[in-house]
Design a protein around this nucleic acid. Sequence first.
DNA 1: CGACGCGTTGAATGTTGTCAAACCGAGTGG
DNA 2: CCACTCGGTTTGACAACATTCAACGCGTCG
Lengths: 239, 239
Amino acid sequence: MATTTCPHHHEVNCGQCRMNTLCLPIALQIEEVDQLNAIVQRGRPFQKDDHIFRTADPFKSVYVVRSGSVKTYAINDSGIEQVTGFYFPGEIFGIDGIAHPHYISSAIALETSAICEIPFSRLEELSVSLPSLQRHFFRVMSREITNDQQLISLLSKNSADERIATLLLSISVRNARRDLSGTRFRLPMSRADIGNYLGLTVETVSRVFSRFQRQRLLNVDKREIELLDVPNLQVLANI
Amino acid sequence: MATTTCPHHHEVNCGQCRMNTLCLPIALQIEEVDQLNAIVQRGRPFQKDDHIFRTADPFKSVYVVRSGSVKTYAINDSGIEQVTGFYFPGEIFGIDGIAHPHYISSAIALETSAICEIPFSRLEELSVSLPSLQRHFFRVMSREITNDQQLISLLSKNSADERIATLLLSISVRNARRDLSGTRFRLPMSRADIGNYLGLTVETVSRVFSRFQRQRLLNVDKREIELLDVPNLQVLANI
DNA sequence: CGACGCGTTGAATGTTGTCAAACCGAGTGG
DNA sequence: CCACTCGGTTTGACAACATTCAACGCGTCG
């Protein structure tokens, strides 16, 4: 009965997906999970740099990362890219398109990734008969707002050091939630992506990493990170 | 039949409210407006510095500004206030609380203001029978996310000049939407609020205003603003 | 009147950005 | 196999923009 569990295998249903405690409302009954499962579309894995959707695409679905990682970004009025989020397994993205006929951001795989697609019109229909699902999606959207507001505060009030410490700890806890190491991990995104997301230049990001290493807060080797002094990183991140 | 229309009068129903094209979904039928109207609660106007809700309060309702203006703010992990938004007549606030048992931000009147309160549980019930209302609220939440992401981009990528030009133009168009002057208006918020919102110090905000005046982009007298050169302000704001 | 809140202005400081150069590892083609 | 390029990263020197600290102006209110 032990199925081979390739991390990017795309035929896993919601009931057996290891991520389901993250992306599904806890309250859902087994038959309700089946109903949701029936509308979820699972395609072939996306390769690094493949787009899941683009700004101009008609809004159709929201997405959940099952394996790998995704970055979303928007092009602002001056034509400059703004990275708006990094998404790891169990996390939902594409929600920001709901108010518009088209997606307002683009989503791109940072590495080979398996992605679940949830057609939004089907989800709306299903929500009517499953109040707990509707409530769950309100909460997911609301959480997205909360996250954005925390990022706003981070950008508005914190130094480069504090921003980077905060991001590293955020990735750390999100790893831990998936039963991975919270202290050793590989960053799927480039320095440029980090800088773009945090409102810093690549050079500043690089310098802060180097300084953190000199201060024995962490070890860094390209994208491999080992957090050495979480308590002091938390002080920096104001946690 | 001409009723006295005190701007803060609180017995106006949704059907006759001048703001309803802003806060209601266009598609709503007359009898549907009545249904919504029945659940909207209108209290006595809030005075300047009165709280509409506070961070610790249990989440119960979302709110719409009918007259006056409101500022929302959150206290971040380090105990510092972060202004998260300014709201003018027709605009909805309090949405960010949906994912949580309590509000995650606080809302305070910047001047004497009339506020409509929409109990969220009633709204959820009503949404089930009024699909267009449900859709509308998804869109409102989504728009909130969009706004936040634009602010993120502004904070992340733009200079003090650009941030302030953007805010002024935003207030300008929101005024124009309410058939008020888009070029002459009074700011309801302090320099400190503006700086807090835009990630700048009061001194910087003040200096930018002065410089804009020297450059004949606008006239400033305390909180009275007159935009003189909208095209060049738009260039600054990358519009 | 004096205290206070709010806004403005000046001078000095500092964090971050800009520009430039070099490094490193992974591919690629000769 | 080596030289080469290329993208991503690091580091240094310098400049710029925003902050900090300080003082002052102005209106309101006790």
